[in-house]
């Protein structure tokens, strides 16, 4: 009798494990689809073209930052400075546009973001300092720079900024331009992560840095690169946000680093490195956007929204990690 019981336990454990594994692989999709169903049931206004475009436009900044964050997290790092670098990108773009041709100004603004990433990345990769602390420091410093440059005031780029705002508020291929740019960058990131040497090694480094090093690969350069990418993309996000509002501001992106990390984690990436994907991260961003949107449509007050968001993030991650929950 006891033998039978043991056998049954074994089989159950087996089927449970597969159940969990499926969730780990497709959990993000499942959550997203469930969320869409709930959203549609909640409000007829949800699946209107206007509303969908709104969500896409709103999330474009977070989405672009999430791409950089994914690469950082894959190497087992973290970048807390993205929100502040976005502010620095926003402010410096608005200032530079006034004295340089638009493309030059934008490249310079993004270059400033990349330079911030270069500083953090060099300290993390070559001096082996903890990413959490270094990017925390950069978070404070970059925000400070943005405040100094803007003197704490919103900056109007003036007439030379008009084309930027025109870009940010119009459509291509039926989608808002910022969303098109975000989706384009996600597509590029997908190719890089899955088909390039760089993407493969970034993932491998997060999984087992020593094995990669002993395969004759210079690990620090790859670690440095992901922070540069993250910094540059954060500045791009800052410029995108500015293009929507038409104003450069040091308060852009405040607290965004946490939304970005939440999106990447909801997308199933592991903070222990080595695990995560571009499409899942995109869906993670969308989940975050749709949750906010549903609550807005349902008229949930702003303060309550934050509490619900916290709960929903936990639930999403619990489902994500179904396999570890069901184990044993």
């Amino acid at each position: 009798m006891t033998d039978n019981a043991a056998t049954i336990n074994e089989t159950q454990a087996q089927s449970r494990f597969n159940f969990g594994k499926a969730f780990r692989q497709y959990g993000t999709f499942i959550i997203f689809v469930l969320l869409l169903i709930v959203a549609q049931a909640q409000s007829d206004a949800f699946l209107t073209e206007r509303n969908v475009m709104n969500v896409l436009r709103q999330m474009s900044g977070i989405g672009v930052m999430a791409i950089g964050m994914l690469f950082v997290i894959l190497t087992r790092g973290i970048d807390l400075s993205v929100g502040s670098i976005a502010a620095l990108g926003s402010v410096s773009a608005a200032i530079l546009i006034q004295s340089y041709p638009l493309p030059v100004a934008l490249v310079m603004a993004i270059g400033i973001g990349a330079a911030c990433g270069l500083i953090s990345g060099a300290l993390i990769a070559f001096f082996r300092l903890p990413a959490f602390v270094i990017t925390l420091a950069m978070m404070t410093a970059a925000r400070g720079f943005a405040l100094i440059l803007s003197n704490g005031q919103p900056i109007m780029p003036g007439p030379s900024g008009a084309p930027l705002q025109a870009f940010g508020t119009s459509f291509s291929l039926g989608f808002p331009n910022p969303a098109v740019l975000m989706i384009g960058l996600f597509a590029l990131a997908f190719l890089v992560l899955n088909y390039s040497r760089f993407g493969r090694l970034v993932k491998a480094i997060g999984s087992n840095e020593e094995a990669v090093r002993l395969s004759g690969i210079s690990v620090p350069w790859y670690v440095l690169s992901v922070y540069v990418i993250s910094g540059a993309l954060a500045a791009v996000a800052g410029v995108l946000i500015t293009s929507r509002s038409g104003v450069g501001s040091a308060s852009v992106g405040a607290g965004n680093e946490l939304d970005v990390i939440a999106a990447v984690v909801i997308g199933g990436a592991s903070l222990m490195g080595g695990r995560g994907g571009v499409i899942n991260t995109f869906i993670g961003v969308m989940i975050l956007g749709v949750i906010g949107n549903i609550m807005n449509l349902a008229g949930v007050p702003g303060y309550h929204q934050q509490v619900y968001l916290g709960v929903i993030i936990v639930v999403a991650v619990l489902i994500q990690n179904g396999s570890t929950l069901f184990r044993r």
Binding site: Y195, S196, N208, A211, G216, G274
Partner: peptide
Amino acid sequence: GVVLDMEIRKNATMASTGPITRAGFF
């Protein structure tokens, strides 16, 4: 020696990717 979570294929080619990549892409 190995990146345990990574595919056998990717582990096997890790030390020499030159011949199987073009412009950095596999």
